[in-house]
Simulated scan of single mutants.
Amino acid sequence: MGPSATGKSTIGAALAAALGVPFADGDDLHPAENTAKMASGVPLTDDDRWPWLDACGAALAEAEASGGLVLACSALRRAYRDRIRAGAPTASFLHLHLTEEEALRRASSREGHFMPASLVASQYATLEMLDDDEAGVVVDATLPPDSVVAAAVAALRRAL
Rank of each mutant, 00 (worst) to 15 (best):
1 M>I: 10
3 P>Q: 09
4 S>R: 09
6 T>F: 08
8 K>R: 04
9 S>R: 07
16 A>Q: 04
17 A>K: 15
21 V>E: 01
23 F>M: 06
23 F>T: 03
24 A>C: 10
26 G>D: 00
29 L>Q: 05
29 L>E: 02
32 A>Q: 10
33 E>L: 15
33 E>W: 10
34 N>H: 01
35 T>S: 13
38 M>I: 05
39 A>F: 14
43 P>K: 04
45 T>S: 08
47 D>F: 10
48 D>R: 05
49 R>N: 01
49 R>L: 04
50 W>T: 07
50 W>P: 12
51 P>T: 05
55 A>G: 13
55 A>D: 07
56 C>D: 13
57 G>V: 06
60 L>F: 00
61 A>Q: 06
61 A>I: 11
66 S>F: 09
68 G>S: 01
71 L>D: 04
71 L>P: 01
72 A>V: 09
72 A>I: 08
74 S>E: 03
76 L>K: 07
77 R>L: 14
79 A>N: 09
80 Y>G: 14
82 D>Q: 08
83 R>Y: 08
94 L>W: 05
97 H>Y: 14
99 T>Y: 07
101 E>V: 13
102 E>Y: 15
102 E>L: 15
104 L>G: 07
106 R>G: 04
107 A>M: 07
110 R>Q: 02
110 R>K: 08
113 H>Y: 03
115 M>E: 00
116 P>F: 10
117 A>W: 06
119 L>Q: 11
119 L>V: 11
120 V>S: 10
121 A>Q: 10
123 Q>W: 02
125 A>S: 14
126 T>H: 11
128 E>T: 11
129 M>V: 15
130 L>W: 02
131 D>C: 15
132 D>N: 12
133 D>F: 01
138 V>Q: 07
138 V>M: 15
142 T>Q: 12
145 P>C: 04
145 P>V: 06
146 D>F: 14
146 D>T: 11
147 S>K: 12
153 V>Q: 00
156 L>N: 02
156 L>E: 01
